[in-house]
């Protein structure tokens, strides 16, 4: 019997095309070579009109509730944000402000960020990791930071970044493959990422 792993990625980019989304897709593509998975990408730029101005959880529309539920039920969560003012974007944080503080216990989370230059690489360690540590999630030891120069036409093109993605996935696998997946699949089909 095979299992399909439920991988949810949150891309904090507000624009399309987006390097952050391209990075998320590259990670999913790499993962799909190793695991049978069902991938769900939540693009906050698309979702923003439905929660950006909402300040009370009770006022969230179903589309956003459903996205939050998907995050909470993931076997692996990939979070990626562009770097704004040396941190994740406001809307990225606003989204996770709606996630219940007990909903991500022990969930493996792969941290990723994209910035204009290498200078903001520490955003992973100083902003993203503390946020998901608060949730008592299992932040994966290796995060992925990508700079603008690592992309060509909004696709990952730098070989060092590609190697980093492979390594991050390789090191993530032992931490997620033992999980009892939520979705039990009877066929061996691998859902295409994205």
């Amino acid at each position: 019997m095979s299992h399909t792993f439920n991988i949810v990625a949150v891309s904090g980019s507000l624009q399309r095309p987006s390097r952050t989304l391209a990075l998320v897709q590259a990670v999913l593509a790499e993962l799909s070579g190793h695991l049978p998975l069902h991938a769900r990408v939540i693009e906050l730029g698309e979702l923003a009109p439905h929660y950006g101005a909402v300040t009370r959880p009770a006022d969230l529309p179903d589309t956003v509730r459903e996205a939050i539920q998907a995050v909470e039920q993931a076997d692996l969560l990939i979070v990626a944000s562009p770097v704004y003012r040396a941190s994740y974007t406001g809307l990225f944080k606003h989204f996770f402000d709606f996630v219940h503080h007990e909903a991500l216990f022990d969930l493996p989370v792969l941290l990723a960020a994209t910035g204009g230059s290498e200078r903001h690489a520490l955003v992973i360690e100083h902003q993203l990791r503390p946020l998901f540590s608060f949730f008592q999630a299992q932040t994966l030891p290796l995060g992925i930071y990508a700079a603008e120069a690592d992309f060509t036409d909004y696709q990952v093109s730098d070989s060092a970044l590609q190697a980093r993605i492979r390594l991050a996935v390789e090191r993530a696998l032992p931490l997620i493959s033992h999980r009892q997946p939520l979705i039990a699949s009877t066929d061996a089909a691998v859902a295409a990422p994205v």
Partner: peptide, 12 residues
């Protein structure tokens, strides 16, 4: 919120 500033602040 969640051991950090509010998203509503960061948006501004």
């Amino acid at each position: 919120y969640k051991a950090a500033y509010a998203g509503a602040l960061k948006v501004l």
